[in-house]
Nucleic acid binder design. Sequence first.
DNA 1: GAACGCATTTGACGCAAATCAATCAGGCAA
DNA 2: TTGCCTGATTGATTTGCGTCAAATGCGTTC
Lengths: 200, 200
Amino acid sequence: MAVTSTAEQGRTFIDEGDPADHFFNITSGTARLFKSLPDGRRQITGFAGRGHFLGLAVSNSYAFSAEAIEPVQYCRFSRAKLRMMLDDFPALEKRLLDVASNELVAAQEQMLLLGRKTARERVASFLLARRLESAACVSPAVHVHLPMTRSDIADYLGLTIETVSRTLTGLKADKLIGIPHPSEIIILNHQGLTAQAGGH
Amino acid sequence: MAVTSTAEQGRTFIDEGDPADHFFNITSGTARLFKSLPDGRRQITGFAGRGHFLGLAVSNSYAFSAEAIEPVQYCRFSRAKLRMMLDDFPALEKRLLDVASNELVAAQEQMLLLGRKTARERVASFLLARRLESAACVSPAVHVHLPMTRSDIADYLGLTIETVSRTLTGLKADKLIGIPHPSEIIILNHQGLTAQAGGH
DNA sequence: GAACGCATTTGACGCAAATCAATCAGGCAA
DNA sequence: TTGCCTGATTGATTTGCGTCAAATGCGTTC
């Protein structure tokens, strides 16, 4: 009923359009969630980490795909099982509603970013959001780890790889961030970066 | 506790950032839901019609504003009242979870549109989505009514008024749609329009 | 029906980001 | 160490859409 599995790096464990008969809970690692157009264009709708629930869809097919960026461990239930659990533990339903509400708020914020922000604002917003997420981990936390590639960041922010790279270089030139390694960013001027993020 | 009110056209009845102490259910009319940046840029995250729930946020302030496009009638509860109702009627919680899940799917589709589709694909997608929504009403339903202004459409699709107008004119020139009136669109070639929408 | 105001359309031009094209840097196997 | 492969950066050029500006159409009031 509830199976624990691992998806190695790069493995797609949810396919957009497939019958949605399972519900997932990620226990470790990071996955990218995305939708694709027939010609290959891709929009990453979010990154899912530890504790994230996937597969809430009401419809009978998944609305997005999920792929492991780092090795991902997850717990998988059949939807029938989920329904039983929801009946047995009403508190779980409350929890899922909270989760969905929060994701909705995040999605609306992302729509603002995709529809109305400039490239620089998008990248700055992204770094600040990443910092918040990982705040629980390292103490200084001006240190932001990016487990995903430039291609992932571009597809998340509605930009191209080149623009993401150029924008990061630009922020570095303005002494707002440091880039010791492509996947490690240091926020040197938090206030300045916030000002570049569209001041929201 | 539960108050029925009316917001005349143009009236803002939810303000982004205000304390979120109420929960709304629209009983008639249409509202635009949007987020704004300090400099005035605006992203409409959706249009809410009859039956739509608003104010699900977990946080203590509204994540978006709501403004009446047409006169809007709504029912308003305090969040305390909502909590009581949720305790009394577990089915309501299920319903809200379904609603939130559906909105999440729609939000992801909109992210794909905003992040990766061209102007023409956005407008075509928008018209087709509008047609689906109003499908329940008129029978032929090739007739799409747009209660919102070009400015609203632009802010929903992440474009400018001018681009929306030019794109509609272009679709008309290609005999895919007819525009008897700015707020009335006729879909002349459904299949052709679908092909222009990014084939999704 | 004349005159005003607002939304929409149309036109000319500019620019931010995309595209096309090398080049560079780091990890890994031989 | 050398060479290769993959991902990131940097550079040159193009372009789709935004900006600025003017014209058109339509509903409303006088």
